[in-house]
Amino acid sequence: MVLAVPSKRRARATGARALPYWLISPAVLLMLGFIAYPMLSVLYYSLQHYNVAKPWRNGFAGLDNFREILTEDDLFWHTLAFSAQWVVVEVGLQLVFGLALALIVNQTFVGRGIARALVFSPWAVSGVLTTTIWILLYNPATGISRYLADIGIGEYGTSVLSDTGTVFWAAVLAELWRGVPFFAILILADLQSVPKDLYEAASVDGAGRVRRFLHITLPHLKNAIVLSTLLRAVWEFNNVDLLYTLTGGGPAGETTTLPLYVANTGIDGHDFGYASALTTVAFVILLFFSILYLRLSKFGGDDR
C-alpha cells in the first residue's frame, strides 16, 4: 500500500519532486497523529486546571501549574534530583563497563563469537523481565544472599530492596546488567572502523598500549560515545519499566523518578493538567541538556 503510490508512471510524470514526499508521507502522518498531536495536547492541558477528581476547578490556568511546580512542589525537585542521580550513575557506569567489554571482545581469541553472544545477551531482555530475574536473586528467603549467609557471608533476612540504604545500588546493579551490552555493541561496531594502519604506525613509533588507546582509539570513538551516551541518558531518564516494577518508586518514595511522579500524578491522581505541566517541564529540561551536551562535546567535529 505504501509502495504502490509511487507507481512507475507517477514517478516519471511528476519527476523526483513529489516522490520523496509520497515516500515519507506514511511516516509523517503516523508521527503527526500519534506523537505530535498528543504532544500538543499535553502542551494545551499544561495551561489548564484539569482534574477528574476536582471538576469544579477545571478551566484555564495560565501559568499556575508551572508556578506551582517551580516554587511550591518539593516532590518535583526531589524526583528531579533522583532522576539526575539515576541517569548520571547509570550512564557513567554503563559507558565504562561497556567500553571495557567492547575492547575485550574486540581482541582475537578462541571462542570469541560465543563469548560475544553471551555477554551481549541481556540487551534483548525487557525491564519487566530484568525485574523478574533480580527479584529472584534479591529474595531474602531463597535468593543469593540466603546461600551466601549459609556459608557465613552476610546476614539472613536482609532484603536489599526494602532498605533505603541499599535500594538505589540494588536497582543500579540490575539496570547495569541489562544496559552495558547496549554500549558494548555500539562501541564494538565503531571499533571495527578504526584504521589499522594508525595502530601500526603508532607501534612503529614506539607508542605503548595505553597511549595508543588514548590517542587513537578514544578520539576515533568520540562521536559514537557522545551519541550513545546521549541516547542512553534520554532513555534512562524516561525509562519507567524497571523502577516501576522493581521498587515501585519506594521504599518511602526513595526511588521515584520524575516520569514515575508524573505517571502517579496523571494516572493514579487524575490530575492531568498538572501532570501535563510536569511533562512539559521534563521535555524542556531534556532538550536543554541535550543541546548543551552536544555543544560542549563538539559533536560531529573534525575528529574524523
Partner: peptide
C-alpha cells in the same frame, strides 16, 4: 521525537 518521554504521553494516547 527521541526526547519525548513515551511514558508521559500515555494519557493523551
Amino acid at each position: 521525537s527521541q526526547f519525548i518521554p513515551g511514558a508521559l504521553m500515555l494519557v493523551p494516547l
